[in-house]
Simulated assay, not measured.
Amino acid sequence: MTDDQVREFIVRALHTEALSCSAALRKLRDSGLACEQQRFKRLFTELQERT
């Protein structure tokens, strides 16, 4: 997945429910997609800081 695709997934996931970073990553992985944990955390934190 590209960074933009991961960001889109995070935004969609957070709009449906309040999730922690680890819960959002679990949701991504459960949907059959993959992203390295450190990269996902960086993108998740980046999006949180914007709000």
Rank of each mutant, 00 (worst) to 15 (best):
L25K: 10
Q48R: 15
V6T: 12
R39N: 07
Q37Y: 10
L33V: 07
Q5C: 12
E8M: 06
L43D: 10
E49G: 01
V11S: 08
S22I: 03
Q48S: 12
S31D: 06
K41T: 14
A23Q: 15
R39T: 03
Q5K: 14
F9P: 00
L28C: 02
H15K: 15
C21H: 08
R12W: 04
Q38Y: 11
Q37C: 11
L14H: 10
A34P: 01
F44W: 15
R29V: 01
A13I: 02
Q48E: 12
R42L: 13
S31M: 03
E36V: 02
R50K: 14
T2Q: 08
M1D: 00
E49K: 13
E49Q: 12
Q5G: 14
R29I: 04
L47I: 00
T51S: 06
F44E: 05
R12C: 04
L14A: 09
L47S: 02
A34V: 05
L28S: 01
V6N: 03
E49T: 09
T45Q: 12
D4E: 11
T16R: 15
R50N: 04
E36N: 09
L19K: 14
L25N: 00
G32Y: 01
Q5P: 07
K27N: 08
Q37L: 06
T16P: 09
H15A: 15
